[in-house]
């Protein structure tokens, strides 16, 4: 089997790529204009593209079992030959400023449709978490991890509740950051694939995981009853999911073309 550079890592990418393709097929089946799987490419050698790899679908086998490396167009995540990237003061600055923007956006949300304990029916701060991670790597993730602590405190959440939410805030920024880098999605959301990746990892899965942790923590602290878990879980998921989709997409579409050219843009995790 001709797996390209990267050995094990690429195999994982292959596996995830197949899963991801199945998800796309599924979504297409549910929401697409036509019933059935994604239309097959006209050419038998047409391909499923994952990052720099192109998996050739043999005519007789519906699943990609062979992979060969075919140079793909450069993405915003690829480094130029000889390009040196180092963390610098620009990253410190962008992280701090993102905390400021996130705290303002988060406080606005926490006060507008409060469900209690900082859980809100509308929390635009999550958009800053998602796009911050996508654009600025770990700097954005850390900013997204910390600013709810401030916005929740300003909105009147006790310290320990804010502490309890930290893992939720981490995952909500980290997951889209990882997904966009791993699958080399374009932050400008140029293709349907980019949109689906954003929808899956920046809107749905990250917020479901965030909500799951948050309500578990609230329940551990005895602040909510087991019976009210669905209320808070759905409040968190919807309250985060809707603004993540609307504002996240607006921010990515409007500002990504500028951000990717800015020196604060992070192609790896730290620079």
């Amino acid at each position: 089997m001709g797996v390209g550079r990267g050995g094990g890592r690429e195999l994982i990418r292959v596996a995830l790529g197949r899963t991801f393709t199945s998800v796309i097929n599924g979504l297409w089946t549910v929401f697409g204009a036509k019933k059935g799987p994604l239309p097959r490419p006209r050419s038998r050698r047409a391909a499923i593209v994952e990052g720099n790899l192109k998996f050739i679908r043999p005519p007789s086998n519906p699943y990609p079992i062979q992979a060969v490396v075919i140079p793909m167009p450069r993405t915003v995540w690829d480094r130029e030959p000889g390009e040196i990237r180092r963390p610098g003061t620009i990253h410190i600055a962008i992280m701090a400023l993102l905390i400021g923007v996130g705290a303002v956006a988060g406080t606005f949300g926490s006060l507008s449709v409060p469900l209690g304990y900082g859980v809100t029916g509308f929390w635009p701060g999550v958009a800053v978490q998602a796009v911050g991670g996508i654009w600025f790597g770990m700097w954005g993730v850390i900013a997204g991890f910390l600013f709810p602590f401030i916005s929740n405190s300003l909105a009147g959440a006790p310290l320990y509740v804010s502490f309890a939410y930290l893992p939720s805030n981490l995952i909500q920024g980290l997951l889209p950051a990882w997904a966009f880098r791993y699958f080399k999605a374009d932050p400008s959301l140029k293709s349907g694939r980019d949109w689906i990746l954003f929808l899956v990892f920046g809107v749905i899965v990250n917020n479901i995981l965030g909500a799951a942790w948050a309500v578990t923590a609230l329940q551990w602290f005895g602040l909510i009853t087991v019976e009210s878990v669905p209320l808070f879980f759905s409040g968190w998921t919807i309250g985060n999911g809707v603004p993540a989709l609307i504002f996240g997409a607006i921010l990515l579409k409007a500002l990504s073309p500028l951000v990717v050219k800015h020196r604060s843009f992070v192609k790896g995790w730290w620079a």
Partner: peptide, 15 residues
């Protein structure tokens, strides 16, 4: 939110 983030990015240069 768009101008807020855009201003933050511009400010990051200044800082």
């Amino acid at each position: 939110i768009v101008p807020l983030v855009a201003l933050a990015i511009r400010r990051s240069d200044e800082v």
